[in-house]
């Protein structure tokens, strides 16, 4: 962007940002981005608006980052699941057992982008900016029977994806890849014995909040996330006032995300309780033993190489700092506490 001395909102230039997402229009994540867009529109007095394309109607989930780079879209929701090749450092948000506080995870991802060069470098290299992360919540395991310890998962076929599958393998469970929309039917028919890689806020959407007999909080914690990215060149071509507006709205967006997560999570919680679902969780020792056995964070650092260590260090430090000051608790934890 050229420094245009006076700056100010002297411009009547308007921008319409094309946003592509795999989420549907009523998901907590899409509502969060809608709220962000409303704020941006207000702050820029209509100078920046967002054109939403939901449910992969514009480009597929796996392509969304590439599409933001080559101009097919201006902004995208990029899931950590789809970031392995292009934003390898960002896949840190997939590490299981790191935190059960989604707020701490969100703030840590924000801070990583601000302060960690290796983390931000991936985004810069692709020509995009991270606007804000979107929470998914902590991993829930839905089961047809009770599980009291990690060993109870051994031999079960459990729908899972991403790095969580590795945690499943390490306790002898059998991870099955399956789109979330097929989980309900497959559970009903015994094709699978359980499912995970979903947060409590997802359960209503897939019809699982009224049909799951046993819900386990496995201690995996925040197991993934997604980030909203924007084409860097485009942002830099905007007047400074607009860029400032994007930043301001993005700072608030983490809060919106947690709000919406709570709304859906609480609804699912009520449905689970009404249908008589039994809740359980593993003991802290069991979870620690599982984490050590799985050794996923260590493997992640050695897989990514060089600077990954600093990213992990900072990530853990930021999480610790926020956890201390945060009184947020995941809707699943809240639900089990009731």
């Amino acid at each position: 962007g050229g420094g245009d001395g006076g700056g100010e909102t002297s411009t009547d230039e308007t921008f319409t940002l094309t946003y592509t997402t795999y989420s549907n229009d009523t998901s907590d994540q899409s509502i969060t981005v809608q709220r962000w867009a409303e704020e941006v529109e207000e702050l820029t007095e209509g100078g920046v608006t967002v054109d939403f394309h939901y449910s992969e109607s514009l480009v597929g989930a796996e392509e969304s980052l590439q599409a933001t780079i080559d101009g097919r879209a201006d902004m995208a929701q990029v899931g950590s699941l789809y970031a392995a090749s292009d934003l390898p450092m960002y896949t840190i948000s997939e590490l299981p057992f790191e935190t059960d506080n989604p707020e701490a995870q969100m703030v840590a991802l924000d801070q990583l982008y601000q302060e960690n060069d290796a983390y931000r470098g991936d985004f810069e290299q692709q020509g995009v900016q991270q606007l804000f992360p979107l929470p998914i919540g902590i991993a829930v395991v839905g089961l047809n029977e009770a599980a009291e310890a990690p060993d109870d998962l051994a031999g079960l076929s459990i729908r899972s994806g991403g790095v969580v599958s590795e945690a499943m393998i390490s306790v002898g469970a059998n991870p099955v890849s399956m789109t979330a929309t097929d989980v309900y039917e497959s559970m009903e028919r015994g094709v699978i014995d359980g499912y995970t890689s979903l947060g409590i806020a997802n359960l209503s959407t897939f019809g699982l909040s009224e049909s799951t007999s046993h819900v386990l909080e496995p201690g995996i914690g925040s197991y993934a996330s997604s980030v909203v990215v924007v084409n860097a060149e485009l942002v830099e071509s905007m007047p400074e006032a607009y860029q400032e507006a994007l930043r301001t709205a993005s700072e608030n967006a983490v809060g919106y995300g947690l709000d919406e997560l709570d709304t859906l999570g609480n609804q699912a919680c009520e449905e689970l309780q009404n249908s008589g679902t039994e809740f359980s969780s593993f003991t802290q020792e069991d979870v620690t033993a599982w984490q050590d056995e799985a050794g996923i964070a260590e493997a992640w650092v050695s897989d990514q190489g060089g600077d990954a260590e600093s990213v992990l260090e900072d990530y853990r430090q930021f999480i610790d700092e926020t956890t201390e000051s945060s009184d947020y608790s995941d809707p699943l934890v809240a639900c089990m506490g009731e």
Partner: peptide, 23 residues
């Protein structure tokens, strides 16, 4: 409506993204 680059990307990425689908 958009740009030549976007058109080329769309066309060039379409074959793989169409077929790389388990469904």
């Amino acid at each position: 409506l958009l740009s030549t680059d976007a058109a080329l990307s769309t066309v060039a990425n379409q074959p793989y993204s169409t077929a790389a689908s388990y469904t």
